[in-house]
């Protein structure tokens, strides 16, 4: 009963926070509420026995997305100091003309319909868990989520790393507004970054290592690394000029690149794309996860940074 009450409370809290975040008249407040919502989501993932996702959500969903949103808001305000929530009066008028209750009607139907569908699903279904358990032995790892991510459905993960790379390419090709240097770090942030960065790196290494048999893995480790990068960037640290060219790009493509190479090599050896022989599976997965961790960390930090580092230099 207590469990039930806890879940109900958590669910209601999620809905309430989401509503407040989406409807708050103040943008800053909306973002802060959204981060809180993300943290509550992490709690929900724990309740749903999904600690892997909880870690990823806390680091990426709430942490990095929140940082990205806040940075974007700061840049919006920096560019347009008077911009608070909505646009000019003309736009305001245009918005008001569309009755806000109108979409609510079909959306209530959507909620009712999807709710009914969800409830109509059978209460027990194994999905693919039996297959996963049966093949876990030969997958090279004992954490089933890692096994699915890096072995059974490794191809998805390869493409997912490509998505990250594409997003970064997109941001860079847009000439994103790079994080300005003028935000001088306060002493607190400076000290904090000096203190926290090694801790973050240690945590990332631990998560990476533990991912093989417990919650954790490349994405969680990578996002912690990314968080360390964000912290460093905020504290005013910048890439050294020599490192922003090829070396940085090499780190960024290391993850998907290593994946593609492994895919090709395994295909040549075993006949199928990403088919690991059971003996080598664990070492291959560890290799892939390590490169992916560096790539994810670097990409997330670069996404946060925004612009192409040393952009002006490249075109001369």
């Amino acid at each position: 009963m207590l469990q039930w009450a806890l879940d109900a409370l958590l669910g209601l809290g999620l809905l309430w926070l989401a509503w407040c975040a989406l409807m708050s008249p103040n943008l800053l407040k909306a973002i802060v509420l959204f981060v809180a919502f993300g943290l509550l989501m992490a709690l929900a993932w724990v309740r749903l026995d999904a600690p892997d996702i909880a870690l990823a959500e806390a680091a990426i969903g709430a942490g990095l997305t929140g940082a990205l949103l806040l940075a974007a808001l700061a840049r919006l305000r920096f560019a347009y100091a008077d911009e608070e929530t909505v646009g000019s009066p003309a736009q305001e008028e245009a918005k008001v003309r569309f009755p806000q209750w109108l979409p609510a009607v079909p959306l209530l139907l959507v909620v009712a319909g999807l709710g009914y569908v969800v409830l109509s699903l059978p209460p027990y279904a194994t999905g693919l868990s039996t297959e996963v358990t049966a093949n876990l032995e030969s997958s090279g790892v004992s954490n089933p989520v890692t096994a699915v991510l890096l072995n059974f459905r490794g191809y998805d993960t390869l493409l997912e790393l490509v998505v990250l790379l594409v997003a970064l390419l997109g941001v860079w090709s847009l000439d994103g507004l790079a994080l300005g240097r003028e935000t001088a770090p306060g002493p607190v942030l400076d000290t904090l970054s000096r203190f926290l960065t090694p801790v973050f790196i240690l945590v990332a290494a631990y998560l990476l290592w533990v991912g093989a048999h417990a919650p954790g893995g490349a994405f969680q480790a990578g996002s912690v690394l990314g968080a360390a990068g964000v912290l460093l960037l905020l504290a005013g640290w910048r890439f050294r000029a020599g490192l922003t060219e090829l070396p940085l790009r090499l780190v960024l493509v290391a993850g998907p690149g290593a994946f593609v190479i492994v895919a090709l090599v395994t295909m040549l050896m075993e006949g199928q794309l990403l088919e690991y022989s059971p003996e080598q599976a664990s070492i291959l997965i560890l290799f892939l996860e390590t490169t992916a961790t560096f790539s994810i960390g670097a990409t997330l930090a670069a996404l946060f940074f925004g612009g192409r580092p040393q952009d002006d230099k490249e075109h001369t």
Binding site: A94, K95, R97, F98, L102, P103, P106
Partner: peptide, 10 residues
């Protein structure tokens, strides 16, 4: 079209 985007997503 009143509210462009809104109507489209509706």
């Amino acid at each position: 079209l009143v509210g462009g985007w809104s109507a489209a997503i509706t």
